[in-house]
Amino acid sequence: MSFVQYSDLIQDGDVIIVYLGHNSVMPVKVQHGAQTQTRYGVIRHSTQLIGQSYGSKVTCSKGGWVQVLHPTPELWTVALPHRTQILYTTDISIIAMMLELKPGSIVCESGTGSGSLSHAILRTIAPSGHLHTVEFHEQRALKVAEEFKEHRVDHLVTVRNQDVCKDGFGVTGVADAVFLDIPSPWEAVKHAKVALKKHGGHLCSFSPCIEQVQRTCEVLADQAFEEISTVEVLLRIHDVRTVSLPLPDFGPDPSSQTEPGPEEEAPPTPSVNHASITMKTTTPPREMPGHTGYLTFATKPRT
C-alpha cells in the first residue's frame, strides 16, 4: 500500500480505510497483533486484515460487517483526524486543475494543516515531482511528516516548520505552482514569487473571507501577477430517493363519461385505493456547506 500506488493485499504496516456505511469511514493502521474497535465490534488485524484483499468484507465480533478499502487521497480527506479546518475534494479538484499539477510538478504549499490537500498533490505529482510544504505549528508539522511516512509518500515531500510570511518556502526558482492557505496570504505573495520558476508558474490562494481576497488580489497585481481570477465552487449532493405522491380524489368526471370517444378514455380516472404515483428522484440534503472559501488564481509571468 502507498497513497501513490495501489496494491491488492493488505499487509502489516498498511494504513487502510474501514468503510462503516454511508459517510462513515475510519482510518486504521494495520499492525500484527493489534485490534480495532468499531461500532460493529472488534476487528483482529492478524487474522482478519493481513493477507486479505482490499475491497473485501470483514465481519466484526458483534456480527456486523464492514468493507476494508485501499486508501486514496479522497478517502483520506473524509477519514483523516482534523487538527485544523481542512480542504475538501471539491476545492482540491479545481485547485489541481488550475495549478496544472501533473506527474513531475514541483509544488510549494503553506500551511500544511492536516495534510488533506497535501496528499492529493502528492498523488498527482508522483512519481517524479516534489512538494515543499511549510507549516508554522511545530506539532502539526511533526505529525504530518509522520503521516507522510506511514503513507509511503515521504520521498516526495519536504516538510518545513517555519513561518512562510517571514521565511518563505525555503526554495528559490523551482516551483511550478504555489498554494497558500494562511490567514494573511498577501504577506506571502512575494515569497511565492521567489519560489516560482523563472519562466513562470501558477499560484492559488484559499481564503474564507472576501476581505482577505481583496488584499491578496491587490498585492498580486502589484507583484505583476497576471490572469488574476477569483472563484467559488460548491458541491451539491443529490440523495436518490423513491417517493410516492398521492393523487387527490377529484370526484366523478362527467365530461369523460359523456364523451362519445373510444373506451380508453375511462381508465385514467384512478381507482381510489391506489391513487398515488411512485418514482425515483433526488432530494437535496436539508443543509449543506454553503461556503468553504474563495479560490484566487494568478499566473506569474516569465521574469
Binding site: V213, Q214, E218, V231, V233, L234, R236, V240
Partner: peptide, 23 residues
C-alpha cells in the same frame, strides 16, 4: 459498490476590485 454519490458542482466567478467586489 460503496460510497455511491450523485453530485454536481456550482461555480461562481468574482469581480475583485477596490470597493467593487461582487459575483
Amino acid at each position: 459498490t460503496v460510497n455511491l454519490r450523485l453530485t454536481d458542482t456550482w461555480l461562481r466567478h468574482y469581480q475583485v476590485l477596490p470597493n467593487r467586489t461582487h459575483p
